[in-house]
Design a binder for these strands. Sequence first.
RNA 1: GGCGACAUAGCCAAGUGGCUAAGGCAUGGGCCUGCAAAGCCCUGAUCCCCGGUUCGAAUCCGGGUGUCGCCUCCA
Length: 466
Amino acid sequence: MLIYNTAKREKEAFIPLEDRKVRIYVCGPTVYDDAHLGHARSSVAFDLLRRTLTALGYKVTFVRNFTDIDDKIIKKMEETGKSLEEITSHYIQSYTEDMHAIGVHDPDIAPKATESIDEIITFIDHLMQKSCAYVIDDGVYFDTSRDPKYLCLSGRHVDESQNIARVEGSDQKRDPKDFALWKFSKPGEPDYESPWGRGRPGWHIECSAMIKKHLATDHEYQIDIHGGGADLLFPHHENEAAQSRCESGHYLARYWMHNGFVQIDGEKMSKSLGNSFFLKDALKVYDGEVLRFYLLSTHYRANFNFNEEDLLASKKRLDRLYRLKKRLGITSGSAVEKAFKARVLEALSDDLNISAALAAVDEMIQNANERLDVNPKDKGFKKEIFANIAWLTDLLGIGGQDPWRWFQQGIDETTRKQIETLIHERSEAKKVKDFARSDAIRDELHAMGVQIMDTPEGTLWEKSLS
RNA sequence: GGCGACAUAGCCAAGUGGCUAAGGCAUGGGCCUGCAAAGCCCUGAUCCCCGGUUCGAAUCCGGGUGUCGCCUCCA
C-alpha cells in the first residue's frame, strides 16, 4: 500500500506500527449544524481507506471524534435557547443518520470531547509541567516556541506571524502563534472545573487527548494515520502534532492524509459564499448510494466540483453494475474472480487510485455482459459475477441493493400496479401484432417516466432518469 | 503579501520517461429488436503556452498564462 503523506509531500510505502494492525484517527465534525457535502466527501474518502486496508488484511481501528463543546455550539445555544446537550445530541444523531445513508460505516470508537475532559486536563497539566504552556487572562496557552518542530508539518515559515497576530484572544500571548488549550468561561457558558479555572477545552487539544486516550501506542509514532480535510492541515493538525510531541515525546502520526474540497461552480463550498449544501437536502433528491458513488469516483486528494450533470453521468455508470446484477437473476455467488480482485486491490493500493479501480470494475461488467450475450445460461459464470459484485459491495459500498428495486425507486404501489397492467395490455397487443397499440402503450409508459425492455424473460421496466 | 495544489478529448477522469495516452458520460455509425430499450462492436486528444534536459517527455527542469486552496471557524 502506498499512501501520500502530507507531512512529506510524497507517496510512501505504508508500514504499520504493529504488524497487520492499523490505527486511524480522522477529525470528525463540530456538531452545531447538519452535515454538508464536504463532510460527506471526507467521510467517504476515509471510509474507503478503512475498507481498503481491511480488504488488504489489516486489522483496522478507526476513530472519528465529535467536537461537542465549542464556540459555535455556544453561539447556537444563545440563538436557540436550547441546552448544549440538546443541540449536540441532535446533530450527532443527524450526522450518524446521514453517514449511514451514504454507506459510511460507523467508526470503531466515536469519542466526544465532553467525555474526555479529564484526559484533556491531564494533558494540559503535563504541558504545564514541561513549561510548554502558560496561563494568561483568558485561558491556558500552548507555547509554540517550546517546540522546535513547530510548523514542520504544514511547511510554513516561522516569520509569518503578522497574519496570525490579529487572531482572537489576548495580547498577553507570548507569541501570536500560540494557541488556546483551555479557554476560561464567561458567565452562563458551559464550563468545567480545572486547576487553572473554570472553562472549556480549546479545539486542538481535544484531538490530541482523545488520540492518547483511545489509540496511542508507545512507539515513535502514536498512531499510523491521521486524516482530515485539507483545510485542517494548518493550524489544526500542526497544533495537534506540536502538543502531542511536547506532551509525550513521540510523534503523533506517521502518515497524514488530507482530502480535497467539494467545490460548487469551481469555488469552495462555504456558508459565507452561500453555496453550501446540506447532505440531507441532497438525499431528498438523490439516492444515498448514488451520492456515495459520485463522491467516491474522484480521487480523495483532488478537489471535487459538485454538479448535477456529473452526478447523473455517475449514476448511469453505477446503473451498469446494477443492470448486470439484475441480469444474473440469482441470489448467491461462488468465489470472486482472482484477477479481478487483484486488479482492483492493486489500484486502491496506490494511494486509493479509485479511477483505476473503477475502470477495472467497468471492464469486469463489460466482459460479463459480453459473455452473457453469448451464453445467457452459464450458471457457474453467473455465480462468479455475483460473487464479484458482492465483494465490491464490501469494498466500495456499492451494488448491495436489490437490482429490481434499484431501477424502480420512488414508484408507489398504485403506480406499480398501473404500470404492470399497461405492460400486460401491451403484451397482449404484441401477441396479435397490434404494434400501433403496443407502441401507444409504450409512449404512455414513457410519459409516466417508465422505460421498458422486451427480453426473452418477458417485458421488464425501469424508472427512467428524469 | 507568504505557502501550496492543479491545468489530459464536448464533460468527468486515470496515466509521473519508452508498445496504438485507461475507464465512464455524451456524440455518430453498426449488430440485435416488429420498432425500441438494454447489451455488444466501431467512432474521438499534436496531453495550457514557450524554452531546456534526453536516443526518447503528457510525464523531468526553467519561464509564462490560467484556475483553485490555505494563511481566520471550516471536511
